[in-house]
Amino acid sequence: MLQLLEGIPTQCVAKQDKVSTGRAWSVFLAPAQIVKTARKLYEAEYSLEDVFALDIEEGFLVLYHFNRWNVDERVVLRVLISKDNPTIPSIASIFDGAEWHERETRDFHGVNFEGNPNLVPLLMCVEDVDFHPLLKTDKKRKQIKDLLNLGEVVSCNKEIEALFAEAEAEVASDA
C-alpha cells in the first residue's frame, strides 16, 4: 500500500485494526489528489465498493472504499471538503461504477462531483433536487474527533493531526 501511494502527496496514512474496523488502511487526501489515487488503485486491481459522505462539523467527509479480489486489503480514502463549496473531482472516468455512487451522494448530502457525466438525481425525485435528506441538524452534528479514530499513523501532516489532537490528548489523560 505504501508503495502504491508513492508520489502522491497524502495528508495522512494510517494502518487500521482489521478486527475492529474491518479495514486495513485509511488514507486522508486532498480533493485534488483523488483522481490520481483512484487511477493507481485501478492499476493495482482494486475495485470500488462504495462512495458516500459523512456530515460533520468540519465539512463533508467523503469516503471511498476499495478492495481487491485476491487479497483482502480494504482501503478507505477520505477527503475532507468544506461546506461552503462542497465540490470534489469525480472518479467516474476511471471507475464507471462511481457514477451512480456519486449521484447518490449528491442526492443525500449535496456534494457536487465535478466531471460526473450525469449528475442528476438518482434515487430522489427530480423535484427534490435541492433537498438533501441526510444532512444533520446543527444539534446532532459532531466533530470528526468524536467519531473516528486515526489508527496507527504512518505519516500525517499537521492539519489532520490537529483535527484529531484533542481526542488523543483525552485518551492520553485517561491512561
Partner: peptide, 8 residues
C-alpha cells in the same frame, strides 16, 4: 463506543 466499522 464512538468509532466506525465495516463488515462485508
Amino acid at each position: 463506543p464512538a468509532g466506525e466499522a465495516y463488515f462485508a
